[in-house]
C-alpha cells in the first residue's frame, strides 16, 4: 500500500459528461459497453440496460439478498453497487449459470428439493449458494443456515434450501 503521492496523477472523471459514466461490464463472460447515468446500480444496469431480469429487486436496500450476483467471483449485493464501480469487473448472474441448456447442480437440487415457491428470491439464493460452496461453508446444516441467512425467502423454503445445498455439497459438485 503505497502512501506515496509525489507522483500523483490527477483523478480522472470516467466520462466527459457530469452525471453519465461509460462502463464496460463483463457479464457472464460477455462485454457490454454502456453509457449510463452515474446513479444506476449494478442491479438496474443488469435489469434495465442488459435485460437480464433474472437478478431480482426485493428491497433495494441491502436487506434481503434477492439481488445477489458474483463480482470477480465473490457474492455481493447488486442493489448497493454502482454499475460504474464494476467497470471491467467480471459479473456472474443466474442467466450464466446453466450451460448448453443444462442446469447447474444447484439449480437441479433446488428443483428436486422444492427449495422455492414463488421463485422470486431463488436466483439470489442460488447465486449465494454457488459462492457458499466455493467458500467452503457447507460443513454442517447450521453452517449452511448461518451463511445463507443473507438471503431472505418469505415463502419460507429454508429447510428445503438447506437440503438442496447439503446435497450438492456432499456430491462435491461445483
Amino acid at each position: 500500500m503505497s502512501q506515496d503521492s509525489r507522483n500523483a496523477r490527477a483523478a480522472q472523471p470516467a466520462a466527459g459528461d457530469a452525471g453519465t459514466v461509460r462502463v464496460t461490464l463483463t457479464v457472464n463472460g460477455a462485454d457490454h459497453e454502456l453509457l449510463i447515468d452515474s446513479r444506476v446500480t449494478l442491479l438496474d444496469a443488469l435489469r434495465d440496460e442488459l435485460a437480464l431480469t433474472g437478478t431480482k429487486k426485493g428491497c433495494d436496500q441491502g436487506a434481503c439478498g434477492a439481488c445477489t450476483v458474483l463480482v470477480d467471483g465473490r457474492r455481493v449485493l447488486s442493489c448497493l453497487t454502482l454499475a460504474a464501480q464494476c467497470d471491467r469487473r467480471q459479473v456472474a448472474t443466474i442467466e450464466g449459470l446453466s450451460s448448453d441448456g443444462r442446469l447447474h447442480p444447484l439449480q437441479e437440487a433446488f428443483l428436486r428439493h422444492d427449495g422455492f415457491q414463488c421463485g422470486y428470491c431463488t436466483p439470489g439464493q442460488i447465486m449465494s449458494a454457488v459462492a457458499l460452496l466455493h467458500e467452503g461453508r457447507t460443513g454442517s446444516d447450521d453452517e449452511i443456515r448461518e451463511f445463507m441467512s443473507g438471503n431472505i425467502c418469505r415463502c419460507g423454503a429454508y429447510p428445503n434450501i438447506v437440503a438442496a445445498i447439503r446435497e450438492v455439497a456432499r456430491q462435491g459438485a461445483r
Binding site: R47, K56, K57, E95, L111, G119, T122
Partner: peptide, 21 residues
C-alpha cells in the same frame, strides 16, 4: 412431482410483472 414452473424459476427466466419491459 417437481414444480412444473421450477426450471424457469431456478434459471431466473420466470417473468414477474416487474420484469416486463
Amino acid at each position: 412431482v417437481d414444480r412444473v414452473d421450477g426450471p424457469l424459476k431456478v434459471a431466473g427466466a420466470a417473468a414477474y410483472s416487474s420484469d416486463i419491459t
